[in-house]
Design a protein around this nucleic acid. Structure first.
Length: 226
DNA sequence: AAAGCTTTCAACCGCGTGGGT
DNA sequence: AACCCACGCGGTTGAAAGCTT
């Protein structure tokens, strides 16, 4: 993790995101949607780069992000997909509903890479131990039909997203605040008017003590709107 | 208990791509 | 055609946590 500091040239914060920053980003996107990552942080009252906001949202704050340990099936998908696609983390992650390319990449480097390289060096040892030639697969039927098995796994995953978005909303569970996120809510937003933003910040009661709100609003409204 | 080492993973950086002008 | 800008991707970094000695 990078050192939490600020960029002396731009005044933008770097490093670990605070809970307050997370809440501000979630609240802003839930209210106005995603319209322009590079401009949005100023409107949301965040001293972060658009890139940093986008990364934080895409990898950790987006409501359908799946956290926690990878299942055996997910491991198999990663291993098989990587053998076919190589380091195309985004393509691999697209086969794993709720998982991000970043998470898949980290999981590969920390867990799976070692397993694969060990297998490549000692295939006979693994076979003697009754392990499958498909890296993560122990079931002999699955070994004989790896592609069929993979397809079954992918099918079961395909229903996951449907389940998530078939409900009227999903809820941020890792944070205190509940926000209503609908499937097609994003990418339709606008920054909002000065009045909109003023009332938006006033409604963020948990952040009353932060140096946002009117001060922040004046800061950028002077050089942006006029 | 503490020092040193290793692992994990959140965040940053640079580059490629595509759309708009 | 050339340039600019926003976005997305993959590689890398380094603090924190966990483990070993």
């Amino acid at each position: 993790m990078r050192t939490p500091n600020s960029n002396m040239n731009t005044g933008l914060r770097k490093g670990k995101w605070s809970h307050e920053e997370d809440q501000m980003l979630i609240a802003y996107i839930s209210r106005y949607g995603i319209w322009n990552w590079s401009q949005m942080p100023r409107f949301a009252g965040l001293a972060r780069s658009g890139k940093s906001c986008r990364l934080r949202w895409m990898n950790y704050l987006k409501p359908n992000i799946k956290r926690g340990n990878f299942s055996k099936e997910e491991e198999e998908i990663i291993l098989h997909s990587h053998s076919v696609l190589g380091n195309k983390w985004s393509a691999i992650a697209s086969k794993l509903p709720g998982r991000t390319d970043s998470e898949v990449k980290n999981y590969w480097h920390t867990h799976l890479k070692k397993r694969v390289s060990h297998y490549n060096k000692n295939p006979e040892t693994h076979e003697q131990n009754g392990e499958s030639t498909e890296f993560g697969c122990n079931n002999m039927d699955e070994m004989e039909q790896p592609v069929n098995h993979l397809n079954k796994v992918l099918e079961s995953c395909a229903t996951y997203e449907d389940d998530i978005f078939s409900s009227s909303s999903s809820t941020i569970t890792s944070k205190d605040q509940e926000v209503d996120f609908r499937y097609d809510y994003y990418d339709t937003g606008s920054p909002g008017t000065i009045d909109d933003l003023q009332s938006f910040w006033q409604q963020l009661s948990p952040f009353e003590n932060l140096e946002v709100g009117n001060t922040q609003l004046n800061m950028f409204s002077n050089d942006f709107f006029y």
